[in-house]
Design a protein around this nucleic acid. Structure first.
Lengths: 374, 374
DNA sequence: ATGAAAGCGCTAACAA
DNA sequence: TTGTTAGCGCTTTCAT
């Protein structure tokens, strides 16, 4: 094992730790009953009070905990569900995870998070989770390939997909409505008097990238008077958004609005504009997508369209629980409606610095900003 | 199942999905061999080429995947490790997770993330993971209680703790050096001519909160000439930091420096100062802890002390792998040295807006800013 | 090289 | 109410 030269390492004697696993057989022997009685006593099945007492004391004394793999093998379920997501660095996925966790833990499941991004592909993750580690999984794939669809079709484990799938795939799915979302943003900018809009996308070979690009194209088509085009950032991150926006803002003529494909790109765009000495929204209006907490925290506040991450997570979890309960039920596709949240970054006039807490859409202080959509 | 009124729901017919799990027995029958031969063929044990071919084809045709729980029960290991963390919304934990994942996946383990924050306590998580779901775990507890120490002592699963433990606990541990970290920050601020410093802590009943508070107190004790005090934010978040800083900055006399207990509180403090019409660093210098990506992204850049999250994660993973391999080895405590990263938020004079990409400490553009520590 | 059989730790059906 | 026993799916001796 290599350790950094900068580190200090101390070594202590290991106390005698109980690295051995105590089994139910040992508990039964210790309590003077059969393993069946021990199992029943431990699981609240019918057993005499005397037996229960003896077994519980024996279990306590020996530090018994039931082995999860043996229990799972016998019972055919693990009481574990997985949320598999590519990019846990994006706050919107953390928000979804929190919503999912709330629902599944209320139903007695533990949620484990599988990060598909780093070393393994989503296909590997689906295959692996399909081996019985979990009773069901919620998948947020960044790219939907034929290989992934085939893995999804083959896995015996119930799956719910967050994101768009081809119509041919009849799986439970929860989707955002990118078309409406982009229309809300473009309509808003046009209302605010912007006429030269650039869409700063993430990678367009990802599902969200393709959908938001198409949504933007459809939205601007409804406004023949404005000028619009798209560029791509390398990633859905602040740094990539910064780099892409820097290029866009140094062109001539400079656009008067940037529609970023997500909040991170939008925040990078605000920083780029500020570093170029431009004012937001005076010189340039900037909007994001996802309405993450950061959008309310940055100055100026980032106008963003809320894709309902919390609701999508919650619904996905509910669909998964329903499918586990009834494996052959028809597949559902749920589309969650977006809503626009207008903040300072896209208004026609700048407001003076006001003392108000950074707000998120769930906070009352934000309600003034919010506009209903659809 | 309840669905939001705003949502659209479509229902399709379910294609006949293979919800049944195919076992190795079925593969063996299909291939015309015994289960033992099938197992050997599948696992690369000695078997004739003919047998291997037959078995592999049968497995392919039937879509066989070995059941994880049965395999785990038989082999006594799961090939899974867990990272249990309270607050996955904090980017520093994501950074650690990424480092951990890199190490463990190189050794053939899958990493699962257990979020201890939301519904269950860390004690529950330790107990649950100790049931055999995983071969080992890395724990980042926010609070170290006697109950947690007792659960840690009892679990048969190898554990590495990220954070400080009482000296009586002889477990593998990886720690940051809060004392040195806070000293680096305070020394830097004094050098820059600041003389009235407020420490905006997170909850001081957490381990990081207590350590950073003590570190700050020790650091200011070395500078009798400056005035210093501490206040507490409700949480290690941007919003809580904003609220706490707002209070501090409205007092008279106003301090000329804020030392925030982490970057999120520091960013909230910058926003609060800006919203009050103060300039950073002109009117007030602000520093953070953790050197997360956000510190390089915000304007002005947030001076921060890097606690070595990447290294701590990597070392923790290495310690865990070493312990799994050799369960009775002596316990190691590794302390990772901090380093100061100076950015615009704490300099004596403000620099004009410069066009440079948002930088993180790993990027070359940041090297100019960085000062070696220790 | 292959097959029969034991057994990982647990729960549940059946008998007593 | 309790104990005996089968068996979840897999790997691995042990014979052959």
């Amino acid at each position: 094992m290599e350790l950094s030269r900068a580190s200090t390492v101390n070594v202590y004697n290991t106390r005698g730790r109980a690295l051995v696993r105590v089994t139910i057989t040992q508990v039964a022997v210790h309590a003077g009953v059969s393993v069946a009685s021990a199992s029943r006593a431990l699981n609240g099945q019918i057993a005499s009070a005397k037996t229960v007492a003896k077994v519980q004391q024996a279990a306590e004394e020996l530090g018994y905990v039931a082995d999860a793999t043996a229990q799972s093998l016998k019972l055919g379920r693990t009481n574990q569900l997985a949320y598999a997501v590519a990019d846990i660095g994006n706050p919107v996925y953390v928000e979804m995870m929190t919503a999912i966790e709330r629902v599944v833990s209320a139903s007695g499941y533990r949620l484990v998070l599988s990060s598909t991004g780093t070393s393994s592909s989503s296909v590997d993750v689906v295959r692996d989770l399909g081996r019985g580690y979990v009773d069901g999984m919620i998948l947020s794939p960044l790219r939907v390939t034929d290989e992934l669809l085939s893995a999804l079709a083959k896995t015996p484990t119930p799956v719910v997909v967050l994101g768009r799938l081809p119509d041919s795939a009849t799986l439970d799915t929860v989707r955002a409505d990118s078309i409406t979302a982009m229309r809300l943003l473009v309509d808003h900018l046009v209302e605010e008097g912007r006429g030269d809009v650039v869409f700063v996308n993430g990678p367009s070979d990802t599902t969200p990238g393709a959908l938001r690009r198409d949504g933007f194209a459809a939205a601007v088509a409804a406004h023949p008077a404005i000028s619009a085009r798209s560029v791509g950032a390398d990633d859905f991150t602040i740094a990539a958004g910064y780099a892409a926006a820097l290029r866009v803002l140094q062109e001539h003529p400079r656009p008067d609005a940037i529609v970023a494909a997500n909040d991170l790109i939008g925040i990078g765009s605000i920083q780029a504009a500020t570093d170029l000495g431009l004012t937001v929204p005076g010189d340039i209006a900037i909007t994001g997508v996802d309405n993450t907490e950061l959008a309310g925290v940055i100055r100026p506040g980032l106008t963003s369209v809320d894709l309902g991450a919390e609701e999508r997570g919650r619904v996905a979890a509910e669909l998964l629980l329903a499918r586990i309960e009834e494996p052959n039920r028809p597949a559902h596709t749920v589309t969650v409606a977006p809503s626009l949240v207008v903040r300072g970054s896209s208004r026609a006039r700048t407001q003076g610095p006001a003392v108000s807490p950074p707000s998120h859409r769930t906070e009352a202080s934000d309600l003034n900003d919010e506009r209903a959509a659809r």
